[in-house]
């Protein structure tokens, strides 16, 4: 997907001036509240009209003020998932799901109700009304409804902000998997860095109504380490086995012990960069349950501390230590060291 946006819009005292071209299928729009992310998204969807400029997607122009061209939202084939589900209360789950599908040109109908229901596992909900669905079910149906309209681009405007924390990461993997399976490019809007990192590759940063740059979500996370919030390592662990009070997971070709695991085949965990202790040599016996051998691939300054990126087998970890420790451990690129992580340092995300 290639999106070209060069637009201006005055809204009261707020002025949006967006000028960017972005290629990619998993694009993020990141910025603080009130920076203009939602306005930008509604302009792309056609729900608001820019004052002037141009919007194009994959070679097709959707808005061009110089040619007085304005494609209405219903002809843009740009789906939307809002902060809250906004399901049609007078329709059943099935009719909600089919609302966009029925209005989609038959030549674009690649995803059908049956395949969607199978992928999203919403079969039992189909003939129910939407009022008494749980929050998570509602948002799943809303995602399904947008996906089933077979859009060429899906806009997600902070779709997780109204969902409970423990459901958030279930839905996020749902969203990502569904879009990947059906090959739907998306623009994911959020002010939460962690969501950005899970959902996107490329990220547009927005500040005060301007698109200030394009970075990778990973770069963004490292840049934010300066704010003393540390860095969150995201580890996708698989194939758990229960051993006494711990769970043994596979992380690529390594084995990791986690105290708060579950029996799910695949689980996303976070480990803070400050929870990793580095050793110059094998410490023989330690209380931490995980000791990984790794190679230093990068050492970078985070302002108050030093970030050390390690390659452990197939995976990568970032630890954060103070300057003195770097000197004592004689760290430099290519050096082999050991990293210890306590089993309780893993936080379960979903």
């Amino acid at each position: 997907m290639e999106l070209i946006v060069k637009i201006q819009k005055q809204l009261g005292t707020f002025f949006l001036d967006a000028d960017f071209t972005i290629k990619g299928d998993q694009v993020g729009v990141f910025g603080p509240s009130g920076s203009g992310k939602s306005t930008l998204v509604s302009l792309i969807a056609g729900l608001r009209h820019p004052d002037r400029g141009l919007i194009g997607i994959d070679g097709e122009t959707l808005f061009d003020s110089s040619r007085r061209l304005l494609v209405p939202p219903e002809h843009r084939r740009i789906g939307m998932v809002f902060q809250r589900p906004h399901l049609f209360p007078h329709l059943s789950v099935r009719s909600n799901l089919l609302y966009g599908y029925k209005r989609c040109d038959p030549q674009h109908r690649k995803i059908t109700l049956d395949t969607l229901v199978e992928v999203m596992q919403i079969g039992p909900l189909l003939d129910r009304g939407v009022r008494h669905l749980s929050g998570g079910e509602k948002q799943r149906v809303a995602i399904g409804r947008a996906v089933l309209s077979n859009p060429r681009l899906l806009l997600m405007d902070e779709p997780l902000s109204a969902v409970d924390d423990n459901l958030k990461f279930q839905i996020i993997s749902y969203l990502k998997n569904t879009c990947e399976i059906f090959k739907i490019p998306y623009l994911f809007i959020s002010h939460a860095l962690l969501e950005m990192r899970i959902m996107t590759n490329r990220v547009l940063t927005v500040e005060d109504g301007r698109v200030t740059g394009q970075v990778t979500a990973e770069d963004l996370a490292r840049e934010r380490m300066k704010d003393a919030t540390g860095y969150t390592n995201l580890l996708r662990l698989t194939a758990p086995r229960r051993i006494n009070n711990l769970y043994a997971y596979h992380w690529g070709d390594q084995e990791l012990f986690v105290s708060g695991g579950s029996s799910l085949a695949e689980t996303l965990f976070e480990v803070s960069s400050t929870d990793i202790i580095l050793f110059k040599r094998h410490p023989e016996a330690i209380s931490a349950r995980n000791l990984l051998k790794g190679t230093v691939v990068d050492i970078f300054n985070t302002g108050t501390r030093i970030g050390v990126e390690l390659k452990c087998g197939d995976g990568r970890l970032i630890a954060e230590i103070v300057k003195e420790a770097v000197d004592e451990l004689e760290l430099s690129k290519g050096v082999e060291i050991y990293a210890a992580i306590k089993a309780v340092a893993f936080r379960h995300l979903g």
């Binding site: 509604s42 969807a45 409804r145």
Partner: peptide, 16 residues
Amino acid sequence: VRLIQASRTLGAGWLD
């Protein structure tokens, strides 16, 4: 209003 916006982005014209 979001319901109306949702229906528009799902391909329904204003009369629809």
